[in-house]
Amino acid sequence: MRILPRKVTTNSAPLRAMALPGLVVATVALVGLLTSGAFAGASPHRSAARAADLRAARAAAPITYSLPPSSDLSVGQQLFEANCSSCHGTDAYGTDRAPNLVGVGAATVDFWVSTGRMPLADSTIQPERKPPRFDRRQTLSIANYVASLAPPSPAAPEIPNVNTAGANLADGNTLFVLNCAGCHTVTGAGDALADGYFAPSLHKASKTQVAEAMRTGPGNMPRFGPGTLSDRQTADIVAYVVGTIEHPVNRGGLGLGEIGPVAEGFVALLIGVGGIMLIAFWLGERA
């Protein structure tokens, strides 16, 4: 064995040599901390006047149920006969291809048509959200016409108009987690159920559509009637869905599609551990 002599080179002081990697890591950590919003929790100042406004807003009716003007009935009938009757029957009592619509109410029809699920090309698979075939007025006309085929009933709700001005997002969150997140997931991204059915994403739903779905229980979804969730609670959930679920606050700066902790963990592992490895290699190169 032989140990070669080597000229003793002058190294920079260890403190200085350690300074650069240390600085890089500290900067990365600081940026991460700031973007993660750990210090962004400053609570907004709420004046007494605003609190009074909020009380007033909460006192107003959270949901008003109404039908569009009946003058649209003939338009609705024409649209129904041209687009719906081939499956649901000219009298709307249903056929072997599609269910009875008499007595389902305007909210049910408005939900299915305004989300583009109806008209449907293939009735053997679960309908998916797509751009609606009809504009708002036409959709309401069809809903109005179908609703006019049966006498009004509590089981056939009219179209809900949700006032979210006084909604309580915290209550909405609690109720959402308990009643909705099981199927739609806490991020509202939707998920698979059994036998090929799925709970759809909530990210494009309007206020009225969320309330309609809750009150009428389309497809495999349970019905959440006023005895289960009051109008107040329903409005809180609607506000939570269209406010928080559809506009999530991503404190980390990157939502990753709101698809949940597994994907987030994977990205953290890949980028976080990958970055640490790069730093380790770099330190090794310098040694």
Partner: peptide, 9 residues
């Protein structure tokens, strides 16, 4: 309180 098809915890 519950309609047919309703669910509650």
């Amino acid at each position: 309180d519950l309609e047919v098809g309703g669910a509650l915890t």
